[in-house]
Computed example of a mutant assay.
Amino acid sequence: MVQVAVNGKAQSIRRSVRKEGQVFTVGLGSDVKTGEPVTVSYTYRVLVQQHGHVLHLDLAQPTKDFRAELWYGDCGIRYMNVLDYLSAPRQPRYTQHPASDPSPSVEVAYEGWTFPKGGVAFVWVLEREMQTVTSRQK
C-alpha cells in the first residue's frame, strides 16, 4: 500500500504482518461525520510473476465510480490488454497509451455503481516473447 486518501485527504497507513498475510489500517480522519458517505482512494504496488502475465482486480462489494489504472513503462511489455467483467448496465470507459508512448498505461473507469463479484484483468505480452515467436517463424 503506497497511498490512501479519504475524501481527497491523504491518510497515514499502519501496516501489521501476521502469519496469514498483511493488514493495512487507515483512519477516516477527523473531518468525517458518522453516517456520512466517504470516498476512499488508494494506490498499491504489486509484484507479479514474470510468466504470470495477468493481474486480477476483483470487487467484493458494490463499488461506486470504479477506476483502475496500470502504468507499465520500462518493464518490457509489448502489448497490454484489458478484460472487464464488471457487473453493470453500461460499458466502462477505456483509456490506453500504447507501449511506444513515453508513459504507457491503460485505465478502466466506470461512473456509477457496479455490483459485487465483478472486476478487471490486465493481460500482457512481453517484448522478448514477441522476438522469440519471430525467431521461430524464420
Rank of each mutant, 00 (worst) to 15 (best):
A99S: 15
L86N: 11
G76S: 04
D31P: 01
S16K: 11
P37G: 09
S41L: 05
Y42W: 15
W71K: 08
K138A: 09
V6R: 11
G118R: 12
N7L: 07
L83W: 05
R67G: 09
V40R: 08
V125Y: 01
S135V: 02
L59T: 13
D74I: 02
W113T: 10
V133D: 06
Q49P: 07
P92E: 03
S30T: 08
K19A: 14
R128A: 09
V4C: 10
G112M: 05
G76I: 01
K9N: 09
L57C: 09
S135R: 14
S105D: 01
G21Q: 09
Q91I: 05
R78I: 01
G52W: 03
L70Y: 07
R90M: 12
S103K: 05
S105M: 08
L59W: 03
T43W: 06
N7M: 05
P102A: 06
Q137G: 10
S103D: 10
F122I: 03
V40Q: 06
P62D: 08
Y110G: 14
D74S: 12
L86K: 13
A10M: 09
T25K: 08
V23R: 13
V38E: 04
I13Q: 09
T132Q: 12
R93Q: 14
R78T: 01
S16A: 13
L28Q: 03
Q137R: 14
D65Y: 04
A99M: 05
